[in-house]
C-alpha cells in the first residue's frame, strides 16, 4: 500500500531504472502507442476509447493524491469530476446559444476555449473540495468515507433537480470546445492533447510527492502524531492535498465532457466515485501510474467482457472481489514486485 516507487529515490540516482519505473514507462508508451496504432488502422472508436482511458486516469490521479499518498478514502470524487464537466458544459452552452452568462459587473458570454474552461473548472473543483474537505476532514476513518459519499450525492441530487441546465436529461455541447492551434474535433489531436495533460498531471504529482509537502502528506497517512511532533498540522496538509485533488479531478471532468460532448448527472453518480477507487486498487494504490494501469484495465475489461455478455458487471464484480481479497498491490504491484499476498 506504500508509495513504493516515489520513496525509492536512491535507486533512481544510480542511473538505472527499477522494475516499477520500467512498468511505468511501458504503461505510458503503451497508451500513446495504442492510440497511434489504432489511429493508423483507422479504428476511430478505439482512439476514443484510449482517450477515455487517459481522461479517467487523470481523474484517478487526482484521487490518488489524497488516497494513495494521504490515506484519505474519499468516496465522493465524482462530485469534482461532475462539477468540472458541468463547468465545461455550462460555459460552452452560453457561448454557443449566445445567451450571456451574466451581464454584471461585466458582460460574460461564456466561452468555448479549452484553456479558459480548464482553469475555471479547476477553480470550481478546488472551491468545492475546499468546502467539502474542510467539513469532512473534521472526521476520520469510516465517517470520512460516508460523509464524502453523502456530499457527492448532495451535488448529484442538486444537478438532477435544478432544471436550468438540463436537470436529469443533461446538457449537450454541440461542438467540441477548441484549443489554440489544434483541431480538437480530430480524434487523434484530441487524444494527443489529453495525453499531454495526463503526463503533465502525473509529473506534477511526482514532483509534489517528493517535495516537502508530499513528504508531510505521506507522513499524515503513516503517523499523524509524529507529524504533529515535528510541528506540522496534519489537517492543513490534508486539506491542501484535497483541494489540489479536487482541481485535478475537475480538470478531468471538463475533458470528459468534451470527449462525450455531453454532460449529465451520471458524471456525478456515486458509481463513478466507486470506479475511481477501483482504478487505484486495480493499478496499485499509492503508485504514480496506478490510475493509468487501473483505468486501462477497467475500460479494456468493460470493452471485452461487454462484448461477451450484457451482464459483464457480474463478472467484473467477481474479479474485483478476487483482487481485493487475494491480490493486494494491484497490477503494478504484481508486475513490479512479483507475486505478493496478504
Amino acid at each position: 500500500m506504500s508509495a513504493a516507487e516515489i520513496t525509492a529515490a536512491p535507486e533512481r540516482q544510480r542511473g538505472r531504472m527499477n522494475r516499477a519505473q520500467i512498468v511505468n514507462a511501458a504503461l505510458a508508451l503503451g497508451l500513446v502507442g495504442f492510440g497511434l496504432g489504432v489511429w493508423a488502422m483507422g479504428e476511430i472508436f478505439l482512439v476514443t476509447l484510449a482517450t477515455k482511458v487517459a481522461i479517467l486516469a487523470i481523474a484517478g490521479a487526482g484521487l490518488n493524491l489524497v488516497l494513495g499518498f494521504g490515506g484519505l478514502v474519499s468516496f465522493g470524487h465524482s462530485a469534482y469530476f461532475g462539477l468540472g464537466g458541468y463547468t465545461a458544459g455550462i460555459l460552452a452552452h452560453h457561448a454557443l446559444n449566445y445567451t450571456p452568462m451574466f451581464e454584471w459587473p461585466f458582460l460574460f458570454e461564456g466561452t468555448t476555449s479549452m484553456p479558459v474552461i480548464w482553469i475555471t473548472a479547476m477553480i470550481v473543483g478546488a472551491l468545492a473540495a475546499a468546502m467539502i474537505g474542510a467539513l469532512s476532514l473534521r472526521t476520520a476513518g469510516v465517517y470520512f468515507i460516508m460523509i464524502t459519499l453523502a456530499f457527492g450525492q448532495m451535488i448529484f441530487y442538486f444537478a438532477i433537480s435544478w432544471p436550468a441546465y438540463g436537470g436529469e436529461d443533461g446538457l449537450p455541447i454541440y461542438v467540441r470546445n477548441g484549443f489554440p492551434g489544434l483541431n480538437t474535433l480530430d480524434p487523434i489531436q484530441f487524444f494527443g492533447l489529453v495525453c499531454a495533460v495526463l503526463f503533465a498531471v502525473l509529473a506534477l504529482i511526482a514532483i509534489l510527492a517528493r517535495s516537502r509537502f508530499g513528504l508531510a502528506l505521506q507522513a499524515a497517512r503513516q503517523n499523524r502524531q509524529r507529524l504533529m511532533a515535528v510541528g506540522i498540522r496534519p489537517g492543513g496538509v490534508l486539506l491542501v492535498a484535497f483541494v489540489i485533488s479536487g482541481a485535478i479531478t475537475a480538470l478531468a471532468g471538463a475533458l470528459y465532457a468534451d470527449l462525450n460532448r455531453f454532460v449529465s448527472p451520471s458524471m456525478l453518480s456515486w458509481h463513478l466515485s466507486g470506479e475511481l477507487l477501483v482504478f487505484l486498487i486495480l493499478g496499485g494504490t499509492g503508485r504514480l501510474f496506478a490510475p493509468l494501469a487501473g483505468a486501462g484495465l477497467y475500460i479494456a475489461l468493460e470493452h471485452l467482457l461487454g462484448g461477451v455478455s450484457d451482464h459483464w458487471q457480474l463478472f467484473f464484480g467477481l474479479l474485483l472481489l478476487a483482487v481485493v481479497l487475494f491480490a493486494r498491490g494491484g497490477v503494478i504491484g504484481f508486475l513490479a514486485e512479483g507475486k505478493r499476498h496478504g
Partner: peptide, 17 residues
C-alpha cells in the same frame, strides 16, 4: 476500510447484475 468498501462495492455489482 478501503478494502471493505471495494469488496462490498464488488458485491453490489454481483448481486445487482
Amino acid at each position: 476500510h478501503l478494502d471493505q468498501v471495494l469488496a462490498t462495492f464488488a458485491l453490489i455489482l454481483i448481486i445487482s447484475e
